[in-house]
Design a protein around this nucleic acid. Structure first.
Lengths: 342, 342
DNA sequence: CTGTTAGCGCCTTCAT
DNA sequence: ATGAAGGCGCTAACAG
């Protein structure tokens, strides 16, 4: 490995001069500059960032902690984060917690050890522990996607309550009055907020909500599938379903198809989360598209602001609007009478 | 920040003893061990990995360089890499090159500076330059997904030629004889290999291939869309299309729908790459599913083997089989005569 | 079993 | 404009 000393030797100057030339800091004569540049090129010298980090106490590295990078929503967030980080010459370490608080905790300790400058976190639970941990080492954190109980933590997310409201109001506009909701675990704030928006839409329309129509499970295919089956089993079926995320929606869709029901002819279906163009053949679901890329990008920028000027004690919460995209999965209430299937 | 010295002081031992206890290396009396553990807990001490890295010359960090993490194929690879890395206590730095060789080069230099122990690379081009660069710093590299001209580089990928062969043979089995192919830029080996498999399948079936039916463009929605439109414009239309990846397939599908053609009634469509369950409503395309997770996982494992025993000079190439999944987008040849639409 | 010494590669500080 | 000394936090190597 070639070090700054090798360069200094070849250029016939001290290591300090090399350092100054490389970092464009301080003075250096034109002659010295040229000789150093030549030596650097000749040796193929690349400064050792680790040594630099040890000296400067900054790693120019941030971490993105999500539940599963395989979820398209988080993937797009990751891309937003990466683009913002590149602009500021920072690297990004990604980790997946699989929604496990234990794993999250383990990872945060590792990341702290690695001296990351900041953390973008999609919290696996609603504990304050991770924030205490990070604060104990003075590592700034920005929470993405989820609302959190902890005070004094910056957040960037989509407005879940308003988004759910828009989706359900759309259904009500189509004439639906019995509308089911399938949401995630109530320990995750988004699951709660989306139900809140759903309930407010019903209330505003003068519809009393039937607790039997609200189901909670994991934000997963199997969760959506299971709860949709349950809903199909109850006495007076709803005519529409609001799914709290894309996985739940696909699970529900599967259950509907298995039951021989057509969407939207027999049942309307709307959901949170759109898929990026290119990941779907022909968009079909009426969705509330979250600005995932922006959540990532702005989250990272908020973090960089903290890193550069830590003297800004005020907490910041950025709530981005979602976009209602009406497609073919939502339609008018099916006419009563004999079911249209044989 | 609390350092190893603080711990040593509180525990009343030397820093070396603390180091030994923390790393479970060398001897330490039960008493010393207990006192150190207590001190560590009391101070909330987290060892500084950066200092460790500087000393030990190993960062326990690998990099994954892909074109775009937003592509589901790479996302799943990333997950495979991350899981393998976690098992070995390594962190992963992700970067996106957007298929730009310049960006790739810039990133590799940055990663070298950060002293990553190894690199998993999906090369943006077919230049040998990145490999020279990495070799100059003795950083092991494993190439994922793509075949590369450079000797002595480990590779893990799916068998593109055989996969294309299987897809096209499937079409031939359905009776198709005029089959178009839309592939990516010929600078990328996978684009070439997939056409080779396509051609071999035709040849084996005694079909002379019409160069007019082979189109090359970027591996993108717009590429697939544009080339499909062209193909629809030629004199004697094909009855089936082989798309070389999922983006091309979706672009082609869009062009077909815009032209009022139904799949598979008017035209069959098959493609490389499946979407993970949960990202699609109801799987529709006949695909050659690549084992993306395995590509990532085994690529990382190959890299770790190199890192642990660098005394294995032989090059290794792991070629994983894809899986043909027949769905509804491929069907028999449409009967001739008046077109079925108005 | 434990401690001392030295130095990883770089940059801050202070001289010159 | 340039260089020498020193140290970031940790651990190899070598004493004891």
């Amino acid at each position: 490995m070639t070090t700054i000393r090798d360069v200094a030797q070849l250029a016939g100057v001290s290591t300090m001069t090399v350092s100054r030339v490389i970092n464009r800091s301080g003075y250096a004569s034109e002659a010295a500059r040229r000789r150093v540049d030549r030596a650097v090129a000749e040796l193929g010298y690349v400064p050792n960032a680790v040594a630099r980090q040890l000296r400067s106490k900054r790693t120019r590295t941030i971490a993105l902690v999500v539940s599963d990078i395989t979820n398209p929503f988080f993937t797009v967030i990751a891309r937003g984060v990466e683009d913002a980080a590149r602009q500021r010459d920072h690297a990004v370490i990604f980790v997946n917690t699989d929604e496990s608080q234990t794993l999250e905790n383990d990872y945060l300790r590792i990341l702290m050890g690695r001296q990351v400058d900041g953390v973008l976190l999609v919290p696996a639970g609603n504990s304050a522990e991770p924030f205490r941990l990070l604060r104990s080492q003075k590592i700034p954190v920005v929470v993405l996607d989820r609302r959190v109980q902890v005070r004094q933590v910056d957040e960037v997310r989509c407005d879940s309550e308003a988004g759910a409201y828009a989706l359900v109001r759309h259904l009500i506009g189509l004439g639906h009055r019995r509308i089911a909701a399938i949401t995630g675990r109530r320990t995750i704030a988004t699951a709660v907020d989306r139900v809140a928006g759903y309930e407010r839409a019903l209330t505003d329309a003068g519809i009393t909500h039937d607790p039997e129509l609200i189901r909670s499970d994991s934000f997963s295919l199997s969760g959506g599938h299971r709860r949709m089956q349950e809903i199909l089993g109850i006495g007076s079926r709803p005519t529409a379903v609001f799914a709290a995320n894309n996985f739940i929606a696909f699970g529900a869709l599967r259950a509907l198809r298995e039951a021989g029901l057509r969407v939207p002819d027999d049942m309307s279906l709307v959901t949170f989360d759109d898929l990026p163009e290119g990941w779907q053949e022909e968009p079909f679901l009426t969705v509330l598209a979250q600005p995932a890329y922006e959540i990532g990008r702005r989250g990272a920028e908020l973090l960089f602001e903290r890193l550069e000027g830590p003297a800004r004690p005020t907490r910041r919460v950025i709530i981005l609007p979602g976009e209602l995209i009406v497609r073919r999965s939502s339609g008018p209430v099916p006419s009563p009478g004999p079911r249209p299937r044989q």
